[in-house]
């Protein structure tokens, strides 16, 4: 469904993403993992059109989308969330999501239909509050997800849906992603810098380090890969320790 080939991004000579290639099959959940700064979010930005690739190609359902502006990538059927939530704070919660439904659809839909889809999507992600200002970290992550889903994507790029969440919230969020794939049949690429919960949900993993793919395969294989272990033991962030711990169990 998605074919990333030789994707490269240079920021003034600094290669944040180097010759990255991977494939995503229809219906799967692919985990894209790697330590902080390994180029995961940049890869998403390149696919979603927020950044222009320096080199390489991105093919989605047979068509080249590399370098297209973000709104056209959205219309092509790719939804994305942001690692740092970017809610429209001056708009109401339902307006946030209805806008995505209205402008993200690749056909013209009525306002009423947009609000109907927005309410359905809010119910799916389970946001209880009605006020954007009052959403906590978990709520804002859900809003990101709702907005991306309201565009009715065929492929969802979820960037660190677990960031800033406590343990219970992480479990919930992972279940939600699994349910999105199950109920709506949406293919997912899920970025996370910790392995933990993600490894139980994804079908396959691609591991990035310093902008390069260092491993790929089934979660169990990847977790045993010496290169991956080295990368993860090489850092001493507490969440990495936790992830390593989870993996040993």
């Amino acid at each position: 469904m998605l074919l990333v080939d030789g994707l490269t991004k240079s920021f003034d000579g600094f290669l944040a993403v180097k010759n990255v290639s991977f494939e995503v099959a229809e219906g799967e959940i692919l985990g894209l993992i790697g330590p902080n700064g390994s180029g995961k979010s940049t890869t998403f930005n390149l696919i979603a059109g927020a950044l222009k690739p320096t080199a390489g190609s991105v093919r989605f359902r047979g068509a080249e989308i590399g370098g297209l502006p973000a709104y056209r990538v959205a219309h092509a059927g790719i939804g994305r969330t942001h690692q740092i939530p970017k809610p429209f704070r001056k708009l109401s919660l339902v307006d946030n999501v209805a806008l995505a439904a209205f402008y993200g659809a690749n056909e013209t839909i009525s306002r009423e239909e947009a609000y109907r889809r927005a309410k359905d999507t809010l119910a799916l992600v389970g946001i209880v509050s009605t006020d954007v200002q009052k959403l906590g970290a978990a709520g804002l992550k859900k809003l990101e997800l709702a907005r991306a889903l309201a565009t009715q994507p065929k492929l969802l790029l979820a960037d660190e849906s677990l960031g800033g969440l406590d343990h219970g919230e992480m479990e919930q969020a992972a279940e939600l992603l699994a349910a999105i794939r199950g109920k709506r049949g949406i293919t997912i690429v899920w970025v996370e810098h910790i392995m933990g919960v993600l490894m139980r949900v994804v079908d396959r993993c691609v591991v990035l380090d310093h902008g390069e793919v260092i491993a790929r395969g089934r979660p169990a294989e990847v977790a045993r890969d010496p290169k991956v272990i080295e990368v993860y033991l090489g850092t001493d962030a507490p969440e990495v320790q936790a992830a390593t711990h989870a993996r040993r169990q």
Binding site: H75, F88, R89, L99
Partner: peptide
Amino acid sequence: LALQAISEEEEAAASIGI
């Protein structure tokens, strides 16, 4: 609404198809 969204978070607005 779209312009208000753009004035707050231009990149996010583009990502939802605006």
